[in-house]
Design a protein around this nucleic acid. Structure first.
Lengths: 129, 129, 129, 129
DNA sequence: GTGGTCTAGACCACG
DNA sequence: GTGGTCTAGACCACA
């Protein structure tokens, strides 16, 4: 289900957070759907359960998941609320990346195409308040 | 010259790499221009010289800087050569960020505007092979 | 009758204890009034009877309820007896919370208003020994 | 420095979070002051370093502390920003506690006195935006 | 020396 | 069986 790079500099739990966040954003994991249990995912990925736990806890802090002790971890139905700060970070990130793509020789036209494609491909699925 | 956030989670040397790369990309630091010597920059930023050294080595490895032993470090005139791989990474990154911006409620129109603005602001400056 | 949050971190039996205690304190449940039987409440809330049982036992232990074997559970007419200790705990709790409200920027005036409002809203109903 | 109740139902790390938060709120720990290092506190309290780490991380999430890897953990100079939700929780808590204090026989006058005393005793020390 | 990550393995509360 | 907590002990990156 997930591909982890154990040799990467990025901590395992963060790679997990990233992957799962992506699945939620792209509506592959639906609202209130249960995530794999800590133990199951741990054995599937041959990773220590504590590491999975940490990833789930992190996702909870960031507002993508909620945990019901004794039941499991589930996808939160609502979008995180500290939008503003996060959006600003994302904007800065994108601008930096676009600069670098230009620098590396990618044409403005190709960049625009890239963005438009990603905008039309959006899988949506969440309702905003 | 540089503003470092000593309290940030990001390692200092990486902040340095990022800032300098940005200056090169935006053509503030011109091709073959000499970067501040390790000593000077270290004393200006009141930072351990080893940290500066590490940042310069990293920039050299990534193809943004070349080092002339006994002389100093200079901006490379040509664009890094592992373009394809890096560009692919950047594209994936941008797509992911755009998805998240949509998920967080930013409108496609605002995203397009953001990108177009950044495309027209490009400072250019490098000649591609 | 009760609104439980099955997704909450707080154990269900504790939520139950809290709700019922509140109803007793606010004199909604009158002295010697019978509480819903375990079975009834369990089916109403679609919750495991053991969980209800545990909540009732807890309420009995804390002095808010008495159990008549074969009859059911009833609201105790008299106030719990370990007043002093409990009151001290409550006082410490309130002081801590007031400190935090001040720290978070709530004005002393608003805090006073909050308290006075709650004092005048008291539903009373119990006679003290 | 801290008194922990190892037999309490409350997890050790949460007790720690509570104590430290209190010290920060009461301005005993000043802004930008360094907290005891993970290892030192762990050996002082004869508790596993991971547990301290978890407490510090939790404090960071809640906005009371920042961590500089390789340097240590420090008191944040600014007040947490998700005030509204937290304040609402605190208000509800206080109302509930006041109700219970009345129920247990504490007089409205004594309650008012308690609050006023705590309001005038505020050690302040933080500047709000 | 500092925080951060990870593992292995144990125990507990809840339902 | 589930998540949550805790310990012991190891290793790494950073400055």
């Amino acid at each position: 289900m997930f591909e982890l790079d154990l040799r990467s500099r990025a901590p395992i739990y963060e790679q997990l957070v990233d992957k799962i966040k992506e699945l939620i954003i792209n509506n592959v994991l639906k609202p209130d759907e249960q995530l794999p249990t800590v133990r199951v995912l741990a054995s599937e990925l041959t990773i220590n359960p504590n590491t999975i736990q940490k990833a789930y806890r992190e996702l909870e802090y960031r507002g993508y998941v909620y945990s019901v002790p004794g039941k499991g971890n589930f996808v939160r139905a609502t979008v995180p609320d500290n939008n503003a700060a996060r959006l600003q970070t994302l904007e800065r990130e994108v601008l930096k990346n676009v600069s670098e793509m230009l620098y590396l020789g990618m044409s403005p036209h190709d960049i625009t195409t890239l963005i438009q494609r990603s905008l039309s491909e959006d899988k949506g699925g969440k309702v905003h308040d």
